[in-house]
Design a protein around this nucleic acid. Structure first.
Lengths: 197, 197, 197, 197
DNA sequence: AATGAATGAGTATTCATTCAT
DNA sequence: CATGAATGAATACTCATTCAT
């Protein structure tokens, strides 16, 4: 008869939020932001529309919340393994990005969607820019350390390749020979650079 | 004045269709498919909504019609210059794709949008697959002709690079050093291959 | 088969607009602005919700449109009879206001509603102020002409009386002895003033 | 510590009720009934929504409860000073009504709001009628005692004036010369009557 | 007595599509 | 061929009310 404690309430909220975000991520990623309705999200999450608004104040804010998670996760991949030497770090970054892509296809689908749905809102554009800059800063340094003649260009190319691979893998996962590409990337971006050094 | 012949009518219809498609392409690419309304298209095309439905039976069918044009145009770039030697053909394909991208950012924005839509619509998925296969067939042959050790992989990589470049250029056109990339691509995909031969 | 002319369309629009405004006036006046839904207006007007938005771009704008009519009508009563001598003008203003009130109870209900729902929006507040000032300017002049010792106060009092009478009549039309009041007002605001002159 | 007695509990309940009513009155009067949500009331009152429903079975019933208070308070003003002679009682009633209006603008705003609502709710209509009758009974008697030739009409007029003044003062408190009106009312409704006697 | 998560019917608004003219 | 009035289902969002704890 006594009311739940604050902690209990907080747990309930946290679980609900995460559940909603998970469902919304899937739907946004597979159908796009505009083509996904709040009703669909609520229904698939097994809750009422009203409750969704108890946790997210708008559809846009729900998207933002998800984007933040995407950003954090991508940055985690990049920043991982910073105790290794630079060449190994790049190698690991390539391996782990590809692995992550294979295991989290939904997640990457959303990432790609967001990039060119950036007309949706300024915030997204800003975040995307921040993400690019953070990525470039970090990876340029790595390429410098392994003696690349043009670390800016190499970092840019690697990023571009990741985008292209993700785009293709996400579109035709069963037909795209992603593992062969992985080895090729390591060869081009790690082994060849070192030889030249 | 004699009544217009059937052929004249057909020409008028054709021009009207093309005008609508042109306007719709612009709007879809700049604002997105969902955010563009039939009213806006009709208004910008200077016709009534009713008349638009005289030419296209639905918004979706209008999109499909546009997609066909995108397909044709992309294939035109690939198939161009088939009187040149293979290495020059690849070089030209790279140059012209990049040039096309720079001049038709709107068009490519739509192309990328479509890739995602293909997840949802069967028709689109089929078209996208056809496009990939046609591209691969043609480009694999070119790489074979210049003596590539792994023409399948080279064709795939070049296609992936195009996608990655398009994605980045479309997102941040002013910040993306597309011309430097062009030269690099030619070096990697044309000059280096030939040397190895 | 040929489309309607512009004039025909304009007539259709005009009739529809007026019908919607009439129904909306009734509902806003009897239930209040917030308590009246677009659905109710559309249903009572025998049209779809969508069509209503073809004519008025929002609920608020529909209200504004109605308010303008209220304003025009009230000012018409005040400004009427400007060819008569001042004392007759005041007398006529009293008579016609009361008559108008008796015949257009709905209309006055809305006027009263609006006054203290003016927090609804700035526009309303501004219009109300304009209305007060226009009324005062005109009526003060009339009282001056008949030699009132305090024309400002007399104009204010008469306005206040109109408001009080309208409020009471609108609330209990059958129980409020409005005709007796009419005569009393004429006596107090016209005959007594003149005597003193 | 002994358990609280029933009476203590009752007192706590009573205080809680009054607190909620006070907060709700403020919000209803300043934002309007429809624009005020139960959540807002609960939050401002420092309690949960659930608890509010422990005290009032619905939003409407909460409003009704408040209305009763409005009624009581208005009647208090009228019935005050019944030990004075009639002319002084009327004078005091005028003075105190105006003073009350100046100090409790929120309260009067609600009173005016309620008059309109009475169109919708039967309960309210009945209460309003009771209020009018009680007021008239009492004030007619006063005017009779000071020898008014038409006490019914005088009582009605005074009530009408109060309504009109309240309406105007509540709408534009800073622009309405309420104090000058007070003196005028006393002159018209008290001094002039007596002279004629 | 007290909490706030959860519901569901309701709100204003939009828009692809139809159709009488 | 051409118009735009008209529809209705869908959209994001709100809120009074209920109820398990």
């Amino acid at each position: 008869m006594s009311p739940r404690t604050k902690i209990q309430f907080e747990e309930i909220r946290q679980k609900s939020r995460e559940n909603i975000e998970k469902i919304a991520l899937e739907l946004f990623a597979s159908k796009g932001y505009h083509a996904t309705s709040i009703s669909q999200i609520a229904e698939k999450a097994g809750i009422s529309k009203g409750l969704l608004y108890n946790y997210f104040e708008s559809k846009e804010q729900l998207l933002n919340s998800i984007i933040m998670k995407v950003y954090d996760e991508l940055m985690k991949i990049v920043g991982m393994n910073d105790n290794l030497p630079a060449d190994k770090q790049i190698e690991q970054m390539i391996i782990q990005t590809i692995e992550h892509l294979k295991k989290n296809i939904t997640f990457w689908r959303l990432y790609l969607f967001l990039i060119h749905q950036s007309e949706v809102q300024k915030q997204l554009k800003e975040l995307y820019n921040k993400m690019r800059i953070d990525y470039m800063d970090f990876v340029i340094k790595l390429f410098s350390e392994i003696g690349s003649k043009n670390p800016d260009m190499d970092a840019l190319l690697l990023g571009t390749m990741f985008d292209g691979i993700a785009l293709n893998y996400v579109t035709v996962p069963e037909d795209y020979p992603i593992d062969e590409l992985k080895n090729y990337l390591i060869e081009v971006f790690v082994k060849n650079k070192k030889v030249k050094k």
